[in-house]
């Protein structure tokens, strides 16, 4: 080891007198984004998988548009909402696993020894997920447009769709973060993925609620918030500006976000059990 005293000032500096919450959040977010951008290989699958399903189901289920009462002639217009939600679910896993890895490796303890505040850690950590979510949403939108999807709500609607997709991604990322804080292992976070997948399939992901024939399935889908997230996204593509659908979608996404962040905040306090 090279001990270079010339570089080390002998006069001792007082410890830092504090750093703003924004600066802390940005520092943690920067790290999360750097991490995300350096794991490209791991990001390809979550990005591509929803597109593969979109491509397959968009064609395989196109006959569904012949069911009387189906809201559009192009099944892809109906289906394009699904990749956004599915991508958000993948983001939740990425965000959760990243945080869980920090807990498992002791990196969180290292951060806990700095004046870092729990809120900054949580929001900053999810910042990487948000960047990923935005990237995914743009890709899905471009693929949709390229495959013939048209936006009934125009350019403004496309922007609102991107915003809604981001809120949804952030909400799911917060869920992933909460699981990581609660259980502290990557396996536990990944174990929840099938459940997220199930909630997507037990929703109006393939057919509109009123066209689901099995009553029990329709009832489950009607109680499933994912149906309303899809409904909001879908409304911008198919029917133009639908205030109710948008309010429900934003409402559910924000409710998930607020609840997950609230519980995460409490879990973070326990996890950072510093006095």
């Amino acid at each position: 080891m090279v001990v270079d005293l010339a570089h080390e000032p002998q006069t001792v500096r007082p410890p830092a007198s504090g750093v703003s919450l924004t600066e802390q959040t940005l520092a943690v977010a920067k790290r999360a984004i750097v991490r995300t951008s350096r794991q490209r290989a791991l990001l390809v699958f979550p990005m591509i998988f929803p597109l593969i399903l979109f491509a397959i189901n968009g064609s395989a289920l196109s006959a569904a548009t012949k069911i009387p009462g189906f809201p559009t002639q192009n099944y892809r217009d109906f289906l394009i909402a699904v990749p956004f939600v599915q991508g958000a679910m993948f983001v939740s896993i990425t965000a959760g696993v990243d945080l869980a890895r920090d807990i498992e490796s002791g990196f969180l303890n290292r951060l806990a020894l700095t004046p870092l505040r729990g809120e900054a850690l949580l929001i900053g950590q999810l910042g990487g997920a948000l960047v990923l979510g935005t990237l995914q949403a743009i890709v899905y939108m471009l693929v949709g447009l390229a495959s013939g999807v048209s936006f009934a709500s125009g350019l403004g609607g496309a922007l609102v769709l991107l915003l809604l997709a981001n809120v949804i991604a952030f909400a799911f990322a917060s869920l992933g973060g909460l699981l990581a804080l609660r259980f502290g292992t990557g396996e536990a976070v990944q174990g929840i993925f099938p459940l997220l997948f199930v909630t997507l399939f037990l929703s109006s992901s393939s057919l509109p609620l009123d066209l689901i024939k099995a009553t029990w399935f329709r009832d489950i889908a009607a109680c499933n918030p994912v149906s309303y997230l899809l409904g909001g996204l879908r409304s911008l593509v198919i029917s133009g500006w639908d205030g109710q659908a948008l309010a429900l979608a934003f409402g559910f996404a924000l409710a998930i976000l607020v609840l997950a962040l609230g519980f995460s905040q409490a879990a973070m306090k326990t996890r950072l059990a510093r006095r």
Binding site: V19, Q24, V28, R31, R110
Partner: peptide, 13 residues
């Protein structure tokens, strides 16, 4: 280096 800069930021340097 990124570790050290992150730590320095969080420590308020």
């Amino acid at each position: 280096r990124e570790h050290l800069v992150l730590q320095a930021t969080l420590q308020g340097l």
